[in-house]
Write a protein that binds this DNA or RNA. Structure first.
Lengths: 249, 249
DNA sequence: CGAGGGTTTGAAGTGCATCAAATAGTGTGG
DNA sequence: CCACACTATTTGATGCACTTCAAACCCTCG
């Protein structure tokens, strides 16, 4: 995190943000204030590598805006994208359980605003603050559920179905009727996120359009009928539509 | 869990087992005793379905011996095996975070001894016992790390490499030199666990033998050279051999 | 307008799945 | 101890999904 991107703004915005993010909302106001003061804000541009897998982790991070790709890669450059996260999400919060090392590499994919906090703070709370720990645990439980489903999806769903599932999770599943959504980031990245090649994504999206009557215009996609889409994609999934509570991230 | 499999043995064995399993070792002796008394032991045979995905979960379980397959399936019968677990492992311990429902289905694949405990006990400890919760959290952190790598492996490794990686994790990675291992369960199950078809497994194992000079005799496999095996498999992985701490389960 | 990245399309190859059948292995009852 | 039934495993042939390589297209932005 380069020093010259440090802002001189007051700490109030960090503080109000922390109040809304679940593990930190359990902190005492004083302690939260302390954390806010320790936060280092930066505005890394697209392409910026924030940290690398297995490097020592002095910080954990809170994304305020933008998008960040989390990934691991092999020596010969093949890379596995484990997640692409945005505002409100934590990053490297598992480092305390990984010998204080980063569990993945991180690269900014849409210009972001990110706050770095000392990992020591997190470790202290986890060892001394039961309500905080419980909240952290609940977060992690959600993540685990999501990962479980992710593995399932990669086994059971083919490329068009994985895309359809992804699109459904971008929809407002409480509403019925047509709705228009925007891909939150590059198609190339969505492809990587779903574990397929860009070319496969392109072709699979065409296939999905033919099967489910969605309308595609660049990054804008109109879901004409959620039922038709879910009938096609959720056939290869253990959960029924609407996908109870898997909607975050 | 059928009633007639309930044993009349004393509770001491349960108690000593609980002392060794990490979240329960943090319990007070009195509380642990209480839990042991509430445990229901059963000896389900191979093929027994213990519970189904999304069903209400009155219990969580501790496997004492045997093997259990955890999976989810679609309406048309396709199934995704998420894990195959054995003695010392917990099952359905995430139910409290899933509206008290089972997060997967479970089937005994090798005659097992299983202890069922009231989910309410677990929930109570998680809400009232910080050391217990922290221990639970640490377990979960390990699981998450494992799932992360699992997803990575499914993206980056081909079938022979996934098998090689699986075999390496069965080895004593601290020792070098040849060693003989046994597949812990059916090849068909290993295949499912690794997300491939039995036929693919068979052919991929042959390929692996040709590439790495392992020797195969039914379920018995001799690893003549771990280095050669890891050179072949770990090339498509972000972690280096020996795979730090991914060895459990 | 031109450069460069994102996206699509085409052609060909690879890996894994599928279907079918043979073989090996295991437990059972005679 | 053997024959049978049944399951696990292997092998073969074929098909499909996805990848790979290559090139065209498109769009945005300097």
């Amino acid at each position: 995190m380069s020093k010259n991107t440090q802002t001189v703004e007051s700490r109030t915005p960090i503080l109000t943000l922390l109040e809304q993010i679940s593990p930190f909302s359990t902190l005492s106001p004083a302690r939260r204030q302390e954390l806010a003061l320790a936060g280092i804000v930066s505005f890394p541009p697209k392409g910026k590598i924030l940290f690398l897998y297995d490097d020592p982790a002095p910080f954990f991070y809170l994304i305020k805006t933008g998008w960040v790709k989390l990934f691991r890669e092999t020596l010969d450059g093949a890379q596995a994208v484990t997640d692409i996260i945005t505002g409100g999400h934590l990053m490297a919060e598992m480092a305390p359980f990984e010998q204080d090392r980063y569990p993945y590499s991180a690269e900014v994919v849409e210009a972001a605003e990110i706050i770095a906090f000392p990992l020591s703070f997190l470790k202290k709370e986890l060892s001394q603050n039961p309500p905080f720990t419980l909240s952290f645990l609940q977060n992690l439980a959600h993540v685990r559920a999501r990962l479980d489903h992710e593995i399932e999806h990669r086994v059971l769903q083919n490329a068009p179905q994985r895309i359809g599932c992804f699109l459904l999770r971008l929809c407002d599943q409480t509403r019925s009727g047509p709705q228009t959504i925007h891909l939150p980031y590059d198609k190339t990245l969505v492809a990587a996120r779903l574990g397929m090649q860009p070319e496969t994504f392109s072709r699979a999206l065409t296939k999905l359009r033919e099967e489910t009557h969605i309308r595609i215009n660049g990054a804008t996609i109109e879901i004409t009928c959620q039922e038709q889409l879910s009938a096609y994609t959720c056939a290869a999934c253990s959960s029924e539509f609407p996908c109870r509570d898997l909607m975050r991230s």
